[in-house]
Design a binder for these strands. Sequence first.
DNA 1: CAGTATCCACAATGATACTG
DNA 2: CAGTATCATTGTGGATACTG
Lengths: 128, 128
Amino acid sequence: METKTDNELVTEKHFPEDLSAYALTKCPVTLTNLIIGGKWKPIIIHNVSLGINRFGELQRAMPGVSKKMLTQELRDLEHNGILNRKIFAEIPPRVEYSLTDWGRATLPILKSMAMWGLDYAKNLGIEN
Amino acid sequence: METKTDNELVTEKHFPEDLSAYALTKCPVTLTNLIIGGKWKPIIIHNVSLGINRFGELQRAMPGVSKKMLTQELRDLEHNGILNRKIFAEIPPRVEYSLTDWGRATLPILKSMAMWGLDYAKNLGIEN
DNA sequence: CAGTATCCACAATGATACTG
DNA sequence: CAGTATCATTGTGGATACTG
C-alpha cells in the first residue's frame, strides 16, 4: 500500500470515508463521483480555484448552502486530498483553502461539465 | 405523456423534475450534475454507449443496483433527453435503450472523470 | 470568523411481492 | 422480460443554538 520513506511514518492514509460503491464496481467514474461529485463539491472547487478561499466568502458565494453542509464538504475535500486547509493563528480566526495538485487536476472535468451544462441550458431556454 | 385530467392540457416540455438547485445558482455544472450526476446515471450512460442496452443486461452489468433504482434512473435520463427508449411489441417484451445526441455529448465528461479516477485510484493503491 | 453539536423532517433507497 | 406497487429503513440535509 504505502510508505517508502523511512523518516515519514504514514499511519493514516487519507481515504475517503466510504469507498464501498467503488470497491463494488471498480468503476473509476464512480470513484470520481465519490470524491468530487454531489451538489456542492464541484462548486467549492470552482470557487476556490477563483481565489474565493475563506469560509465566509464561500458561504456567500454559494446561495443555499448551510454552514453544516459547507463544513462537511470542505472536510471531505480536505481529507481526500483535494483541498489544503491553512489555519492562521489570529483573532478573529482565519482559515484559507487552496487546491492541491489533485484538486487542480479536476478542473478540466468541471470545465467540460460546465460546457455541456451551458449548451443544455440554452437548449432548454433556461440559461438566464 | 400523461394527461391527468381530461380538461388539463399538458403542454410541458421535458424539463427535469427539479431544477431548483440550478434555478438558484445558475451554475451550469450544477445543471449537469442534476441531469447526469449521481451514483448510477453515469454508469448507465457508459454501459449504453458500449451497447449494453437492455434492462436485464444493464442490471447485470451494474452490481448493487436495484430494479427500482435502475427503472427510476432510466426514466430520468429518458425524460431529460439523454436516452431513447424503444419498445418492441413482442412476447416476451423487449426494450432497447440508446443514447441521444445529448447523451453522446456527455461521453467526453465521463472520459475525463474516468481518467482522473483511474489516476486517483492508482495513487491510493486501490485500482484493483 | 469559522466553525460544533443536536435534533429531526423527509427524501432516497432497499426489500419484497406482483404483473402484462 | 421489463417492469409496478407498497412498505420499511436509512440517510441527508435543514434549523437552531452554542463556542474558541
